[in-house]
């Protein structure tokens, strides 16, 4: 197991290296000069040259890249063109907001999707099943920003129960933090719940049609035990992957929702960095997102081996 994790970590490092290269090259292709943008109306040739010199932008590309990778290895992702703050610090600061949003959304989604998907499959064709399918169809089809806007209109505007947008850190005031978190995470969570419900439903249905379920029924087990012992564990193996992919993509920041709710997460940071052509920040954000994605996938593989004895990770 340890060897598996170490191998996978080494592989992840290679993937991350590839990510840096791709992002680096892509940014060279984007039109627009970051130093020009950063200077704005205060532009004069001398400052411009000095800034380019300081940022190392006048050196050959391969040198710039190797320099970037070398610094990244020791945790230095450069400084923001705009604020001059270290990128590492900027992206790490944004992580808690995004992580809270993503985790909360996925937990909410699982809490909704798990019972709905299960009941819907066990009571296949019943009114509950039909209602569940309408809900999940709705959740999959309706864009999240629309749901977000409706949420703001109803819960902030009409009822005044929740703040329309913004963020309070947990350390500052946990209750306010929770109130601010509720609407964006439920909005994101509803979409995820819809996807997961459909998936759990079909996965459970698939498991219930398996021969070993008939075997269990033949043993005269209580129907509930047939489901918990034989259907669930088999049905959950594929669900783990889908839930993890959802979590990983949410950890990458939900750009539209973060912008809509003025949520200071990675998505918002990426959005702002693109707008401002703040390349170091953009690179740093993409790198962090890629690293999170790889980490979640590694965890899934370990979890998989725990859930499914047919998969060995040695």
């Amino acid at each position: 197991m340890t060897r598996f994790v170490l191998t996978r970590l080494a592989q992840s490092a290679v993937v991350l290296l590839g990510v840096t290269l791709v992002v680096f090259l892509l940014l060279q292709l984007v039109p627009g000069d970051p130093v020009r943008v950063a200077l704005g109306t205060r532009f004069d040739q001398e400052t411009y040259d000095a800034l380019r010199e300081r940022a190392g932008l006048n050196r050959p590309l391969p040198i710039q890249y190797l320099d970037y990778v070398g610094s990244a290895l020791v945790g230095d992702l450069g400084v923001s063109f705009r604020s001059g703050e270290p990128v590492t610090q900027i992206v790490i600061e944004r992580l808690p907001a995004t992580a809270a949003l993503a985790l909360f959304a996925v937990v909410f989604a699982l809490l909704v999707a798990f019972p709905l998907g299960l009941i819907s499959a066990v009571k296949n064709g019943s009114p509950v099943d039909h209602a569940t399918r309408v809900f999940s169809q709705f959740g999959v089809s309706v864009p999240d920003f629309w749901m977000g806007i409706m949420g703001i209109i109803v819960f902030a505007g009409m009822l005044g129960w929740l703040p329309p947008s913004g963020y309070t850190s947990f350390g500052e005031d946990p209750w306010e933090w929770f109130l601010h978190l509720l609407m964006p995470s439920v909005t994101v969570g509803l979409v995820t719940a819809a996807i997961l419900t459909r998936f759990i439903r079909s996965s459970v249905l698939e498991a219930m049609s398996q021969d070993y379920v008939r075997t269990a029924e033949g043993k005269g087990l209580m129907p509930r035990r047939v489901v918990t012992r034989h259907v669930l564990r088999n049905a959950l193996i594929p669900v783990v992957t889908v839930a993890a992919v959802q979590l990983a993509s949410l950890l990458g920041g939900v750009i539209v929702i973060e912008v809509l709710f003025a949520w200071p997460g990675l998505g918002r940071l990426t959005y702002d960095a693109v707008q401002a052509r703040d390349y170091p920040v953009l690179q740093g954000a993409v790198l962090l997102v890629a690293a999170l994605f790889l980490l979640v996938n590694l965890l899934v593989d370990v979890l998989y081996a725990k859930l499914d004895p047919r998969i060995s990770v040695t």
């Binding site: 075997t215 033949g218 012992r229 564990r233 859930l307 499914d308 004895p309 047919r310």
Partner: peptide
């Protein structure tokens, strides 16, 4: 009961 296909009539994760 003994079923036709022993490959599928046992629960793979138990």
């Amino acid at each position: 009961f003994v079923y036709q296909d022993p490959m599928t009539s046992l629960n793979p994760v138990m």
